[in-house]
């Protein structure tokens, strides 16, 4: 990142911020992020956020769960200590299915959520970098990078104001 200075446009209507952001992207400004109390439908597409690879991770974890479950069960009942239980064969694959299914789901859930936390750098007790105290209540904030000698702050501010911003601020991120 070549700059830590941003200009914040604060809105109270999601449609306004949506239109503003679209215009800003179209006009070539570098929008760092948009902060909202709920996920605004379509905003991630506008910002150019690619579809998360957490779906791939989820699939991989599911496969891990399946392999883990089958390995555990076949090892325990067939390779390690075989027992005659009800006359059934020691390698009784149909009965392995319920546990395999459950472990696949368990691994998917925990693995994927763990990745989610890791990718977002979310940890218990982390001090939140609060952009605006009301971002989790009823305000929406768009943060645009101020690239020195490139970004026309005045023009930017007017675009924001014309599209319904109720407040405009400048801020510096600590990276």
């Amino acid at each position: 990142m070549d700059t830590n200075k941003v200009i914040l446009g604060i809105y109270n209507d999601p449609d306004h911020i949506y239109d503003t952001t679209k215009k800003l992207i179209h006009d070539g400004y570098r929008v760092r992020d948009v902060y909202s109390p709920f996920a605004i439908h379509g905003m991630d597409r506008v910002l150019g956020i690619k579809r998360s690879r957490l779906t791939v991770a989820a699939f991989c974890f599911a496969m891990t769960g399946i392999v883990l479950a089958l390995t555990l069960q076949t090892y325990a009942s067939y390779f390690d200590w075989q027992m005659n239980v009800g006359g059934k064969p020691s390698l009784h694959i149909p009965t392995y299915i319920p546990i395999t299914f459950e472990l696949a789901i368990l691994c998917t859930a925990f693995g994927m959520v763990g990745c989610f936390f890791a990718v977002n750098k979310m940890v218990w007790g982390k001090n939140a970098d609060i952009i605006d105290i009301r971002v989790t209540d009823d305000l929406f904030v768009v943060a645009i990078d101020i690239i020195p000698n490139k970004t026309d702050v005045a023009e930017l501010s007017s675009i924001l104001k014309n599209n319904g911003a109720i407040e405009i601020r400048e801020r510096e991120f600590e990276d």
Partner: peptide, 28 residues
Amino acid sequence: YGFFAMGWNGSTKVWHRYEVISLILAAI
């Protein structure tokens, strides 16, 4: 509440991933 909020600040990047995992968690 700060402890359990894990540093959440409403970023759309995070919301995007949040919606993805919500869907997948729902799907499983």
